[in-house]
């Protein structure tokens, strides 16, 4: 079985994230890392591999992004993925989810031409744009079923069943491979790379593909042909701290109640 895990390199959510002058996300001035929510996808891919017995499953980490985005692939390799693919091309910069899903789909097809891909695994959202639409778009482009937002995964043969905590119900979803699977942060803590894993990662194969390798026309992706346009980005003024009181012998509850009443919440 072949599993491709999509991993995104994002600006650190705990840093001061910013936009560039052209309203794209600043991916240079802010330290980047493997999107935390994609670590859960890598983890589940590795668990599927471990359950099946090591030799039968190959896990490939796939990343679309600029030069330094390769760090996201390296992290996945350190965690235990078998090989990596980094799609990098200046023309991709500024692509929206539509463009990104096109590049990912073509990369999955290219990888699949060498050996059949059974599962494309994604995180529930990126921690930067956080649209949560790429897995559905990828499934649409590949004409595969999607089993998305999984908190629990079970697989048997070519069948996959997941538990999905939806907006109004908890559902069990089933589909046959090949399929696109996405996992939530409820699926299980991601492992840390071990020292052995970090050393082993250095020897793992890591391919770099360009748009022409994928047969994607550079004119079909990137900021200038994106199907959406950001008009303006404005930093929200920081909230100013209001009154803070120390609770002494019930004074806190009284002050809190008075504040809520003054704002007409009671």
């Amino acid at each position: 079985m072949n599993i491709i895990v999509c991993v995104k390199h994002v600006p650190d959510a705990t840093a001061d994230r910013k936009f560039e002058d052209d309203n794209t996300v600043d991916r240079v001035g802010v330290d980047g890392l493997l999107s935390e929510l994609d670590e859960y996808a890598v983890e589940q891919a590795l668990q599927l591999k471990e359950k099946a017995g090591d030799s039968e499953v190959e896990v490939t980490a796939l990343c679309v992004g600029p030069e330094k985005a390769v760090d996201a692939v390296r992290k996945a390799l350190q965690m235990g993925a078998d090989k990596g693919i980094h799609v990098v091309d200046d023309a991709i910069a500024g692509s929206d989810a539509i463009g990104t899903s096109l590049v990912l789909a073509k990369a999955v097809e290219k990888a699949g031409a060498e050996s059949k891909v059974d599962i494309v695994l994604c995180g529930m959202a990126s921690t930067d744009a956080a649209m949560s639409v790429v897995p559905a778009m990828l499934a649409e482009r590949l004409s595969w079923p999607q089993v998305t937002m999984a908190s629990v995964i079970e697989s048997q043969g070519d069948q996959v069943r997941i538990k999905r905590d939806g907006d109004t119900a908890t559902e069990v979803i089933g589909a046959s491979m090949p399929l696109v699977l996405s996992v939530t942060d409820q699926s299980g803590e991601a492992r840390y790379p071990s020292f052995k894993g970090i050393m082993a990662a250095k020897k793992k194969p890591l391919d770099t593909w360009s748009l022409s390798d994928l047969g994607v026309d550079a004119g079909d992706v990137g900021l200038s042909v994106a199907w959406t346009e950001v008009e303006e980005t404005t930093a929200r003024p920081p909230r100013s701290q209001g009154e803070i009181v120390k609770d002494e012998d019930g004074s806190g509850a009284t002050a809190l109640t008075e504040f809520l009443a003054s704002k007409k919440f009671i």
Partner: peptide, 14 residues
């Protein structure tokens, strides 16, 4: 840092 009003105290009593 974000609050309009804050109470430093134990929620179990406040």
């Amino acid at each position: 840092e974000l609050v309009d009003f804050g109470v430093v105290g134990d929620l179990k009593t406040v």
